[in-house]
Design a protein around this nucleic acid. Structure first.
Lengths: 332, 332
DNA sequence: GTTTTTTTTGCAACCGGTTGCAAAAAATAT
DNA sequence: ATATTTTTTGCAACCGGTTGCAAAAAAAAC
């Protein structure tokens, strides 16, 4: 159907190697030859088959974009940035949805069958065993929003969730709240664990402040709402650090439903600063996570690893900052 | 690095064809042979290379998932459903982000270079010239959320936007609004045009009702908000049909910012019924678009086309329904 | 136990490219 | 002009598989 290398070679009256070389940068071809080949190629509408090429070059320029988070609106932006960033570098994202997977085996096999050059795992809830399994097969892996640990076996890019937890705690303390709580995402998520750790660590310096914590079933509106409704019926805190914006928005809805006011009765601080949090009808005070930088850094790291697969694993952590809007009471 | 067909053949002491056949359904292999090969394959951790295979079978099982809409939260659900649905059928989505593209040439070349088996165009704003260009190269194409026309050259799956426009108009009429308006997405989007057409057509049966229309720059919160702010400063209508939920939410925010109440002062009806529209702090009355059905039907259609590439193009349209929440005044 | 039919297997060519190597051509030096 | 060096080109093998065909093996028929 579509023209092949051989077709072009025939039409131009040259060898197939010559054609191949014109389409390979850095290969030795005279200007005259190149002209001839390009003319024939243009006439036939030829463009090289990347998959056939990949057999010999061992490069598919395919990158597995692996995630399990298709319910948190921030991930739409994440996918947008990843796909564009990868495209700009001549790489193609092969999207892998791991929503219901518990075992890395299937996804690993799939990535191997398509010979991806690397895998970007974009999730703060996917167990580390996934990225580890990929890495064990010598696949270059970047875990975006992954956990940094003292002996990381895969590259991690994101924020320091412990620091973010402290930052949230401190913000609540400074605003004079005396009884605070942490509302986390799923307990199995490393991000939920680390944020709690930071939150508690900071509060350990303020022994006069009461604290508690609980977890929502997922990083989603519904889960946040459900958990907050439960909390409000018991013995609510004055202010909550919700480990994610979408969780916060769910919590916000619960608070209002119970006839309470924000920030007068209950204070809420989120994490992420997604676009929606700035919307006037939400107006959430939150901790900004520098998504663009995280993603462009993830891509750079992946590109670097393609040339140097055994690169020593590193963690790239970006600073966060509090974005003040309307869901915490003013500083005292 | 990873084991190849030949490695397995050597270890099992059989020909490469035998190995190939054990991994091809419907091929002729004795049980004894299959056992032997499977044992060797398991020991080596072999799994066939799909890309090499595709060279001879001419099937990559790669489907281009093409979109330009990475700002409307509903598309996160769209991507979720598409990726899972395709995966379940052994197909792999190659994500193509066309946000800044105006010319199909690049994307077409890319799809060809990766020999995708087909392309799903998921967008109501991408000009038809894209899907047409793909189709012209004999690529199976499904345009999800695309326009249905009397002589379609590509398969379209979605809703009848004209009918949806009428439905919105009728809803406003029945609630006694005497001055209504349409707030569309980008004027170039076929969905924006068709919804307006339906809206106006219905209103032509109600000559006593005043109507007007305008367009937002994009299907986004900001665009909806900006346009609504502009409208409110002039000579606002009593109720608006916003052609998309995210637009409606932007408009809602503008209305509240101007100190007006919904639905008492201004009524709003959206279209899509995305998850967020049901959130208690938004509570948008809207027209439900059956996303799950649309997407599973799109996938079925694509699968059918893989076997029958010259299938006669069809349009699959699904009915919508009004979901009543809190942004229109009660029926009189 | 043969002969015939059916099933299983291996050979070898091919899918669409790339690349090391040596020969041919062009450029430079003498 | 010839000898030497450099650049360009084509040959042929290979990447990891599949598949038509004919030979070999097994099963069925006689």
């Amino acid at each position: 159907m579509t023209a092949t290398l051989k077709d072009v070679a025939n039409r131009a009256g040259v060898s197939t190697s010559a054609v191949s070389r014109t389409f390979t940068d850095g290969a030795s071809v005279s200007l005259k030859m190149r002209r001839k080949v390009e003319k024939a190629a243009a006439e036939l509408g030829y463009s090289p088959n990347f998959l056939a090429r990949s057999l010999t070059t061992r490069r598919t320029k395919l990158i597995g974009l692996v995630s399990n988070n298709f319910h948190n609106p921030i991930f739409l932006q994440v996918f947008d940035l990843f796909t564009r960033g990868l495209q700009d570098r001549g790489l193609r994202p092969l999207l892998v949805n791991l929503s219901d997977e518990v075992d890395p085996e299937n996804s690993l096999r799939m990535l191997q069958q398509y010979s991806v050059d690397g895998a970007i795992v974009a999730s703060s809830t996917l167990p580390p065993v996934f990225s580890k399994a990929f890495r064990d097969q010598k696949l270059p892996v970047v875990h975006t929003f992954g956990r940094y640990s003292s002996s990381p076996d895969v590259h991690a890019v994101g924020i320091d969730n412990v620091v973010a937890g402290r930052m949230a705690a401190l913000e609540l303390v400074e605003r004079g709240y005396k009884k605070v709580a942490y509302l986390g995402g799923p307990q199995s998520a490393t991000s939920a664990q680390d944020r709690l750790e930071g939150f508690e660590r900071e509060l350990s310096h303020h022994p006069n402040i009461k604290q508690s914590h609980s977890y929502a079933a997922a990083y989603s509106f519904e889960a946040g709402r459900t958990e907050m409704l439960r909390l409000l019926k018991e013995n609510p805190a004055e202010a909550y650090f919700c480990a994610d914006d979408v969780l916060s928005i769910g919590a916000l809805s619960a608070v209002k439903d119970m006839g309470l006011r924000v920030p007068e009765d209950i204070g809420i601080i989120g994490l992420n600063d997604m676009e929606m949090s700035g919307w006037e009808n939400i107006n959430l005070t939150t901790i900004h996570q520098p998504i663009r930088q995280i993603i462009s850094s993830s891509i750079e790291l992946m590109v670097a690893m393609l040339d140097e697969p055994d690169r020593y694993p590193e963690a790239r952590l970006f600073p966060c900052r509090v974005v003040e809007r309307g869901t915490l009471r003013p500083r005292s």
